[in-house]
Design a protein around this nucleic acid. Structure first.
Lengths: 135, 135
DNA sequence: ATAAATGATACCAATATGGTGTCTTTTGTC
DNA sequence: GACAAAAGACACCATATTGGTATCATTTAT
């Protein structure tokens, strides 16, 4: 059971790397030298981030990518939603009718509260956190 | 992005239903009348719960299932681990080397803390919570 | 013109998910 | 003992998701 898929992970680390480069653009070739990822897969991820307006892209020689928004504005939560779809932990719970002997219960309530709290926390972690210990 | 798969959900609701029956055994036929689930799938889930020693099973006419442990001892966390494998939210994060410009970072730390807190919470929710509002 | 870069998009293998079906074994009842 | 009602074991299957590859088109600096 995992919360983050590989593309989310790659995206976070890639954004961290681009953020570290400040205003300079970074190419896919640069990135795969630094990060250990398959090129084609990384290109797909970068395109996604670019389409979602988190990256500015520049074509042609000397081109590459740079951040379109500040690192502290890119949250883990948004990465999850982009690469793993809408965040709905409890999608399945009590879809159907529960056991008819059970009229109300505190389970769903509690689960919903956990979800809310988790979302708040995932929104509080940003790409900025990747840069904190930078030399 | 979902946290609970269908079998986890079914398992939780089924256990709630069995718990509500107190010491009496409940058959698959009983359960599918009350809960809206495909019979074969439910049987597979019940077998799993039985193998994991959460249910006692009785074969033959008049047989069925009953809880092997107290409802307050069966957590959502254990259901997730049984049906969805080991709980490791951060499996992928920083598997490979992160961008070399980033030596240490607070991201993984923060994520790990979130994971810990989430586990504690999921362990605090039990089948008992399903019975709370019971008539 | 050419090479360096991204954009769009189609494809693919492996795995997970959600579910079904069949045959075996156990056990209570007539 | 025969039979039916239950669970046990397990093989199978369709679909979706995940993780990844490959190809061609477009843009742009030199």
């Amino acid at each position: 059971m995992k919360l983050l898929t590989r593309d989310t992970d790659y995206a976070v680390r890639t954004l961290g790397c681009i953020a570290a480069a400040k205003e300079n653009t970074v190419t896919v070739t640069d990135l795969i030298k630094k990060l250990n990822m398959p090129k084609s897969f990384l290109r797909k991820i970068l395109q996604m981030l670019s389409n979602k307006k988190l990256l500015k892209s520049f074509k042609g020689t000397g081109g590459g990518f740079s951040l379109a928004v500040k690192p502290e504005e890119i949250t883990i939560f948004s990465m999850i939603e982009i690469f793993q779809g809408p965040f709905q932990l409890m999608e399945h719970v009590f879809r159907g009718k529960a056991c008819p002997e059970i009229k109300t219960c505190s389970l769903k309530e509690k689960m919903d509260r956990i979800e809310e709290e988790l979302i708040i926390k995932l929104k509080s972690i940003t790409i900025m956190d990747l840069l904190k210990g930078q030399k």
